[in-house]
Design a protein around this nucleic acid. Structure first.
Lengths: 320, 320
DNA sequence: CTGAAAGCGCTTACAG
DNA sequence: CTGAAAGCGCTTACAG
């Protein structure tokens, strides 16, 4: 209809393509009339780049990751990338979800609230797909990591609680196999050790990193006698559950009867109903760094696997 | 390496492909050794199906849509589909986001918390891409809709509030141009009219469908004299904001000083800190119906645009 | 600036 | 059950 070659049409749709303005105009006009839309799939096959970044989210129930997803999505779209989303069933394996995605010639892979097997990591490296683990670090996996400095965050909480007068403590934790869990606990307990709090004065309960888990853990921890002065919830969503249990079911006062701190700083945490003292993760910077490691910010993707840690900042509110 | 043709390899990777088990085994073994993964892009080009469903989310800040997204994502993955995610910048146009996606030969498009232009709708129809508007209805657009029965939901709230003794009312609403907004208001006011509440006894304030908007609207509505007996917040996230404003800033008691109801039933609504009376949307059924309309549930996609409305159910909690 | 042609990596009638 | 070959709809050196 425009009377030009296939190559010319291709150039007309390529930003910066070597084509006369007049020709481009003709092509675009015809395209409009014909409602022609270039086939992205064919383009990808030809160029060997899909313009797709895959994001795996391990825990969509946690508002923290919903926020992170929204951020990634917005930035990636601004950069002209498309995002392929994978959510994991509770305890589901990333490998299953990802296996199929390797065929997409994706430009990058970000994995949050989950890890990948070393086999999968090797496959990605081999296909030279840059991958970054967001909020998790697995030494020796050979992929990039972007994390909050969880050890330092744990220390911060310990200091804060101790400064506020707490001398006996409990931790409500989640999946103990993750680096996130271990690092936050380590920072917390090692700092308390420095402050000469004996390890046996620190209880521990599992809260599954969920609201309900935090709720139940608080009940177990504070229901009997021998109540600790302060609770460190390893993430905010568990802290909300704990707070609701403490105030609603246990009828205790926070921070008078028991103090409590979380980690993440999700939107809920700052609201009047909770006003949770917590450690804020600098998510904006962390997202940007992730994009950089993916090679999406001008500079090429890291050749050696890098791990970036960002300091969290303590947000003082009303639960300590 | 397996000593077979390209066609045989293809068949080996096709579930139900006509190939001898022994041959398939040979191919798979070689593939493993070579770390070969079939190129999905090429496959799509060849079959003209991408196995991709695109989801557009207008408002990722609202936990309700995060929940909906999680549901869609899970179900779609179970069905072997991949999901391409588009999030809209505040007030951003779907058309921009979607324009590029038409090239993906997607199997379907679901649009939530947003609408598409009639031009875009026509393009989709023309490319025979099934589209369903989730939680929105635009008469004459020519695409499917899956909605909560918002008019009936509004009525339900009106009855509930009136039964509880309220005689003067206020609505905290969002974007007035959406069907969702109009329908909920219409149901609410028409039911009140039946109960002989005069329209002028119903105030209205904008809350932008956000927490902060609801918070500010509650302040405006209840800050002065002439306080209404009850508030209908058109969605839950605004209701949470309103509740926090009422209890935290205005120091009023709910439901004694003022009653309040929301819409959606997001996870927060049921928690001890809020215990919000609201209308629950039957999201599971709505998601399944959406998938069915997309032609993903065995039956083919609807040939005529359909609109499905699902009744919401009133969840009585502590704010009425 | 423009076009002819090869090639991206699959799938799938068609024969055998 | 298996293979040779055409075709999916683009892009991109290569010539001109």
């Amino acid at each position: 209809m425009a009377g030009v070659s296939q190559a010319a049409v291709s150039r007309a749709f390529t930003p910066g393509g070597r084509i006369a303005e007049a020709t481009r105009a003709k092509v675009l006009k015809a395209a409009l009339a014909l409602k022609y839309v270039p086939n992205t799939i064919a383009r990808s096959l030809s160029t060997r780049r899909s313009n797709i970044v895959a994001i795996v989210i391990g825990d969509m129930e946690n508002p923290f990751y919903a926020t992170v997803l929204a951020l990634f999505s917005r930035r990636l779209q601004e950069m002209g990338k498309h995002v392929l989303l994978f959510t994991l069933p509770q305890g589901g394996s990333v490998d299953d979800a990802i296996g199929s995605v390797l065929g997409y010639q994706i430009d990058g892979l970000v994995v949050t609230a989950a890890t990948i097997s070393s086999r999968m990591a090797r496959l990605c490296v081999q296909q030279s797909i840059p991958v970054v683990l967001y909020n998790r670090h697995v030494p020796g996996l050979g992929v990039n990591s972007v994390c909050c400095d969880n050890v330092a965050g744990g220390r911060l909480v310990a200091q804060t609680l101790h400064d506020a007068g707490a001398r006996s403590f409990a931790i409500i934790c989640g999946d103990a196999s993750t680096s996130t869990t271990r690092d936050r606990i380590r920072g917390f307990t090692s700092e308390l050790a420095k402050l000469s709090v004996r390890a046996k004065a620190i209880m521990e309960e599992g809260g599954k990193y969920t609201y309900d888990g935090g709720f139940a853990a608080a009940l177990r921890l504070l229901g009997g006698r021998n109540r600790p002065d302060a609770l460190f919830c390893l993430n905010d969503i568990m802290a909300l559950g704990a707070l609701d249990a403490i105030r609603g079911s246990l009828k205790l006062k926070v921070p008078d009867d028991v103090m409590l701190a979380g980690f993440d700083d999700i939107p809920d945490a700052g609201r009047a109903a909770y006003r949770l003292t917590t450690v804020r993760q600098p998510v904006d910077e962390m997202v940007e760094e992730t994009l950089a490691l993916l090679g999406l910010q001008g500079s090429p993707p890291a050749s050696k696997p890098l791990v970036r840690r960002f300091p969290g900042v303590l947000v003082m509110r009303d639960t300590v």
